[in-house]
Amino acid sequence: HPAVIELGDVDLNCPSNCQIHNTHFFGTDRQIIRRGQAFNFYARFHNREWDDSMDQAIFTVETGSHTQNMCSLSRCLDQTCWSASYKIHQPKCISISVFPPSNACIGRYILNMQITSCGHTYQRCLGDFYVLFNPWCAGENSRGIEMV
């Protein structure tokens, strides 16, 4: 029977995300991203490939005031709320996109990943990231207008 998937290295991909989010002038050693725009990082596994039929992941993002937002890892992003999707990047490695909605609070967040695999659940803190306002995001400038 298949083994519980073992999470190995997680690369938050800060330099690339900072470039894409126009925050590289703050330095590229921290994850500084803009709301309304996804950021990507890589999760490697020690023992086998990620398998949707056996493995699930839930991400929680929490701010200093302990506000928690949760989202499940799926195949596509929902751009109306916190969401997470993935695609295969390399053998035993997936590329994960996390989307902070345009109404996300600005500030520091802690990112946790909870994996349930073959009936076992474990959690890892992946580190922190900072969300800034996004002058390039349509949602920032159209408060109160519902997109249908």
Rank of each mutant, 00 (worst) to 15 (best):
R124V: 14
T28I: 14
F133W: 08
F25I: 05
G144P: 13
G119K: 09
G64H: 07
Q79E: 14
I110A: 15
F26E: 02
D51H: 00
P135W: 09
W50Q: 01
G64R: 11
S102G: 12
C76H: 10
G107H: 08
Q123K: 11
R34L: 02
V148D: 13
S117H: 07
F45R: 02
N103R: 10
E140R: 10
F26D: 01
N22E: 15
S85H: 07
I96H: 04
Y122F: 14
M54K: 06
R75V: 08
R108M: 13
H66L: 05
K87N: 09
N141D: 11
Q31V: 01
N13I: 05
F39P: 02
T80R: 14
Y130T: 14
I106A: 11
R143G: 13
P135E: 11
D51R: 01
T80K: 13
L111D: 09
C18F: 00
S16F: 10
N40V: 15
G127A: 05
S72A: 10
T121N: 03
R34G: 01
Y130G: 05
P91R: 01
E6P: 00
G27E: 08
Q123Y: 05
N112A: 10
S83Y: 14
M113E: 08
G119W: 07
P135G: 07
W50A: 01
V10G: 03
C125Y: 03
C14L: 09
S16M: 09
G27L: 10
I32H: 04
C125V: 12
Q68P: 00
H66V: 03
S74D: 15
M113L: 14
I88A: 02
